[in-house]
Nucleic acid binder design. Structure first.
Length: 309
RNA sequence: GCCGAGGUAGCUCAGUCGGUAGAGCACUAGACUGAAAAUCUGGGUGUCGGCGGUCCGAUUCCGUCCCUCGGCA
């Protein structure tokens, strides 16, 4: 049994992944699996630069519009949803392209996650209560799992809570789970392509794109979602562009400020993405999106080649 | 024109009883195993508005000029 092939197409926000993915999928007869943590949500269209109906009619897109704003999702859920798709496309002999900027989801797809306990909402709620009552959760972790505490910053509450959760539910420190797993799963034969542009090009693109989002109705989209009864405290409303638009609609900031803050947050996000790709995707090939022919050729060879084993 | 407040990092501001200055944000580099568009870590990038005076030494005190914001005319 050979492993199914999977092509990853990623890059910082606004570099031009989606257009390239569409062209590549058309050229190869492939299908696109979304790897963007926010395009999963129905109704979050403009601010996520989600592919429109025309594009989705031309090439099958998976894992877009599959969640309501109040539905929990995480890397493990992504892995569970996306892996069967890659396997199915592999059986059908159709190229599978995972496309999106959520590096953590992509790495989970290709390298896995340790199979320990998932989220335990009741435990999380208890931790949140203790934290707001002044309990030092880092000190607790340092006492219960000093190895993990040594690796984490005292202010990194997301990872501290996760570490306490794993220990509480499984009785074993997260460091042990991680050591045993070591991100060593390789369920797919993978080719990773990153598209990026020089800073001068990105600056203008991000600015134009952000302004267009607001001009094309991001505030109206958010108003519609709120009018439908969704709470602005739900996770996807914390996303770049949405957070700022909610502030604007509440009258806390001006429209110009909302645009400005969104642009700044977008730039910072693109930088964080590059840092992730450099550090976590060492084997990836980097291209300018204008090198579409070269990229498609590379993908063609990849999907056409005999499995390596 | 007069009175008052102010002019310090890219921005908002703190501070220096005279010994060349620091926070947040921005910026930059990095981390990342079920929140990842999240969360976190390191790094200070500066004619302290201009000119002159006093002083061993002025961003700080004095004088003067410029600019900004209020109020009164």
């Amino acid at each position: 049994m050979t492993r199914p092939p999977l092509a990853i197409l990623t890059g910082p926000t606004g570099a031009g992944k989606s257009d390239l993915a569409l062209a590549a999928a058309l050229a190869l007869g492939g299908e696109i699996i979304n790897a963007d943590s926010l395009a999963l949500y129905r109704g979050f269209d403009i601010g996520t630069a989600k592919p429109g109906p025309e594009d989705r009619a031309r090439v099958p897109h998976h894992l877009i519009d599959v969640l309501d704003p109040d539905q929990d999702f995480d890397a493990a859920a992504y892995l569970r949803a996306a892996r069967p798709l890659v396997e199915r496309l592999g059986r059908e002999g159709r190229p599978a392209l995972a496309v999106g900027g959520t590096g953590f989801y992509l790495r989970s797809l290709t390298a896995g996650l340790f199979e320990g306990p998932g989220r335990d909402e009741a435990f999380r709620a208890r931790l949140a209560g203790e934290a707001s009552a002044g309990v030092d959760l880092y000190a607790r972790l340092a006492a219960l799992d000093p190895e993990t505490a040594a690796r984490l910053a005292p202010a990194d509450r997301v990872r501290i809570e996760r570490a306490l959760e794993v220990l509480h539910v499984s009785g074993r420190p997260i460091s042990q789970w991680q050591r045993e797993h070591a991100l060593a799963e390789r369920p797919f034969r993978t080719l990773s392509v990153i598209v990026d542009r020089p800073p001068e090009e990105m600056a203008g693109r991000l600015e134009r794109r952000t302004r267009l989002m607001f001009e094309r109705g991001l505030p109206a989209e958010v108003e519609g979602l709120l009018a439908a009864g969704w709470s602005p405290d739900l996770k996807p409303f914390g996303a770049i562009g949405y957070k700022e638009t909610v502030e604007y609609l509440r009258g806390r900031i001006s429209l110009a400020e909302a645009v400005d803050k969104t642009l700044t947050a977008t730039r910072r996000y693109a930088k964080r993405q590059r840092t992730w790709f450099r550090g976590q995707m060492p084997g990836a090939r980097w291209f300018h999106p204008d090198q579409a022919d070269e990229i498609v050729g590379l993908l063609r060879d990849f999907f056409g080649s005999a499995p390596a084993e």
